[in-house]
Every structure is written in structure tokens, then in C-alpha cells.
Design a protein around this nucleic acid. Structure first.
Length: 163
DNA sequence: GCCAACGTTGGC
DNA sequence: GCCAACGTTGGC
């Protein structure tokens, strides 16, 4: 699998997590983690086929107070089978999935930056440059979403951080 | 292949 | 806690 190394070919994404499940503070503690538990085919396809080492990720806290982009991370390992699907003890267990023919995939990410001031959903909604952002569309439930470079930059501007 | 019923997500 | 949007399931 070819690695993306240059900024020119880098892609940008947004990953959602409920902080009660896994937060940016957990990632700060761990440094690197595997992004398990995605059980949606559209998101799976991105994890398996599109997301590459060197790609950048906005870390979004969903179902939280406040809902916010809490920081960023970098993909360090491309898609590989999500072993939690085979573990009956896991919350993400999928009885129908088969280790010989994995259905669900995950990637590894490492923390890049925890924003000192998380960029809240409220602030995102007010930003002119983010009016088309998938995250802000009504009924948008995908937990893995593509982000444009312009959106990536706009979020950093709001965070007061160099992109 | 259609579609109603159901379960989940996630903002409000 | 509510409920709209969405994905999945299963009967036909």
C-alpha cells in the first residue's frame, strides 16, 4: 500500500467520538490509538480504502457538552481489520463478522494537537467558510467524514492555531 | 426489489 | 427526554 507523504497529496477527515467513550484527553494520554467500532459501510469503505498514513483528522466530540472539534490527529497506520468485531466481550462485537473475511476496519491515529480552546459546534455554525461542511448538515450521522483543505484551514483559524 | 417496521445516532 | 434522519432488517 502506497504511503502518502507530501502535504500536496494529503487528505483531510473528521472523526467523531463521544468523549464519554473516547475523548481527546484519552488520546493525549495514549499518544496513539486504533480507531475501532465503526459499524457503517460508507465509513468502513473510507477506513479501508481511502484513509492513508499522513492524512490529517479533526477530532470531534459528539453527544457532548459542548459539542466541539477538540483537536487534530494524524493517521499512522492504514486500514486493517477491526478485531473488536470478533470479541464477544466488546461493545462493538458483530456476531455476523468473520475473521477470515473481515467486514469492519480501523486505522491508527496519533495526537497532533489538542486545541487549548475547542472549536464548538456553535462557533462552527457561525463560520462563513464552513457553511457546506458535512458535519453541520442536518441529519449528518456519518462518523467518518471527508473534510476539504479549506475547511481544515478555517477550523484552525477559529482555533487560533496554525494549520 | 419494494417498503414498513425497527433500532440507532446525535442535535436540540 | 424528544424526535428527525438515516441505515438495516425481513416479510412479501
Amino acid at each position: 500500500m502506497a504511503k502518502r507523504k507530501s502535504a500536496a497529496t494529503r487528505k483531510y477527515w473528521l472523526f467523531k467520538s463521544e468523549p464519554s467513550c473516547y475523548s481527546i484527553d484519552d488520546l493525549e494520554r495514549d499518544g496513539t490509538t486504533f480507531w475501532d467500532g465503526v459499524r457503517n459501510y460508507q465509513a468502513r469503505n473510507m477506513l479501508r480504502d481511502e484513509i492513508q498514513p499522513g492524512d490529517r483528522v479533526l477530532f470531534y466530540h459528539s453527544n457532548a457538552d459542548p459539542m466541539a472539534i477538540a483537536g487534530t490527529c494524524e493517521v499512522v497506520k492504514p486500514g486493517y481489520p477491526d478485531h473488536t468485531a470478533f470479541d464477544p466481550a466488546s461493545d462493538h462485537y458483530d456476531a455476523k463478522s468473520n475473521p477470515d473475511k473481515p467486514t469492519w476496519f480501523m486505522v491508527d491515529v496519533k495526537l497532533l494537537k489538542k486545541f487549548k480552546q475547542p472549536v464548538t459546534r456553535e462557533v462552527l455554525k457561525e463560520c462563513e467558510a464552513l457553511q457546506d461542511m458535512m458535519l453541520l448538515r442536518k441529519g449528518s450521522r456519518l462518523s467518518i467524514q471527508p473534510v476539504t483543505v479549506e475547511e481544515w484551514q478555517a477550523v484552525h483559524k477559529l482555533a487560533g492555531v496554525k494549520a
